[in-house]
Design a protein around this nucleic acid. Sequence first.
RNA 1: GGCCCCAUCGUCUAGCGGUUAGGACGCUGGCCUCUCACGUCGGCAACACGGGUUCGAAUCCCGUUGGGGUCACCA
Length: 480
Amino acid sequence: MVRVRIGPSPTGDPHVGTAYIALFNMIYARQHGGQFVLRIEDTDQTRSRPEWEGMIMSALKWLGIQWDEGPDVGGPHGPYRQSERGPIYREHAEILLSNGRAYRCFCTSDRLDQLRKQQRQRNVASGYDGHCRHLTDEEIAQHIQAETPFVLRLKVPNEGVTKFVDRLRGEVSFDNGQIDDQVLLKSDGMPTYHLANVVDDHLMEITHVMRAEEWITSTPKHILLYEAFGWEPPVWIHMPLLRNADKSKISKRKNPVSLNYYKDAGFLPPAILNYLAMMGWTMPDGREKFLVDDMVANFSFDRISLGGPVFDIAKLSWLNGLYLRECTPEQMVEHLRGHLFSDARLVEVAKLVQERVDKLEDFMEHTAFFFNGDVRYDDDALHAMQPKGRTVKEIREVLEGLCERIDMLAEVNRTNIEQELRAYCESLGWKTKELFMPVRVAVTGSKATPPLFESMEVLGKERCRRRLRGAVAVLRNLES
RNA sequence: GGCCCCAUCGUCUAGCGGUUAGGACGCUGGCCUCUCACGUCGGCAACACGGGUUCGAAUCCCGUUGGGGUCACCA
């Protein structure tokens, strides 16, 4: 029985990398008549938010990624949200404590920071120095008595090697001296990824762990944990990482990574899935256009190539065009109505321009920017983007900063964006109009528009960010 | 920097000892056509380097170089 899983962390927008890994997991489960589990890994209490969780699940559903077990559909191995599995982790931590495979660490984060700094200075491998590993029973009792906050660390053997077989690469081995005494339980009582992941995968009877390559170096820690518990580890499959054009790990700095971006821009789910499938995998007959079912019928690990694939929006666009072209005109209208031209959205737009048009035909002139992709900035717009007394560099950096602030918001609405913009002005020490006009122009391409906050709400987070980024690029060009 | 992974056109890739190194995106030229787009035909463009192994290496081994990842009480 094949059981696979993905464990997205609800700490931001639904990520294209999540969809990528999800796709391969789902394909593999389907091909083997197994189950595909969705587990929400929300053990980071400071960054996890339920809004993100909801968005991730709906974005995956929109794409057509379906799971057999998960927080929304339930299943026999629940709960499927790690924040609800606290007792399970504590119970297992207890096992490791009592069999001597883990120990309490009372070190302060100050000391750890110091340690890391020193290690970096001396240019030695960083890692925990084992300070608390040899505490006497009395010392431990004292700390517990004094209620010193502590974490639980994995006791990694000093000698020997830990190895595992990656289905795509063969044997990979690490010197144990190289492996850190990982924190297993944080001082807030929550498990770290490592503990939660291993415990859950075992309890949920996961047979194949298909995840991104960035996890490869922490796999030995996981192996050690399986050993410590006396469990059988799953089959490991580390998929290549999606890349930016410069080959670095795909990031929002250099690429649109939010699935919402692709939805808003009008990419079709089958096209996206098709494209993602081509990232590192090929059909045996070389076909480039294929459906999920075709992939299920033909998938094999042996056809995965390991060079990190650059995510190329141009090629995605071409593929999407293929799918769009095979629609009937009626279907195309349906797609348009589904999102970009939905009645609800049209109503919002209408509200904003009603008082500005005399004839219906004036509508497009006032509202085109709501429906377009990127906007172009003419000289007039460029001029308006630069408030008097501020340098191009300043305004560029301010818009960049705004982009980051918007990124923290689950959605952009008139209320929160006004708050955000005003707070930003305050922190900058700028007058509101110095900021609002550049933002208006950046986001709409024009000086004369419906009210800014409302417009931004209708444009949506993704379009706002995209244009802000576009404006930043234009301004940066102007600088040199 | 230590450790780990990776390495064919700019990009996605086929190739699993013997090929004129193939396809796709992009770029480009022609055709189609009232324009554009689509479509179609053609072109440019790659085995990182150095050693082995072998009758023979893009394919196997080693090294170099290059790229990436990772070194958190984030996942």
